[in-house]
Amino acid sequence: MSATLWVAVLACAFGTLLMRVVPFLWMQRRLNSESGLNDLPQWLGILGPLMIAAVLGVSLMPVHPSPASWLATLLGLVATLLVWRRTRSLGLPVAAGVATFGAVVVGGQWLFG
């Protein structure tokens, strides 16, 4: 990699780091300061959960989209939901979802080649 390419890598890295750290520090200084905010602005509090929902929507796309992989996605989410309702935790629902998704994908390949 040439020197100019390294500069490009470092510029991307530094720019991305600034986008992560500067708004965080800015808000942390503003919160509970005498001249600043006492609480997170409402729109930001709403945007947080919506960003998670958006990341979920993007990640729902299977690696190899097909009717079988979409069915596996649906059943995997149902399994995740059922186990989450019982445990109200994160680890076990994820394990159940991945196991169900994997079983449907492997079963589909075994049945239909």
Partner: peptide, 22 residues
């Protein structure tokens, strides 16, 4: 070959478990 197809489902499963309580 299936590793790259099955394991990524951990992410939507995790995010789903995070979004459902909301």
């Amino acid at each position: 070959p299936l590793l790259g197809e099955i394991m990524p489902f951990a992410l939507p499963a995790l995010f789903f478990a995070m979004v459902v309580p909301r």
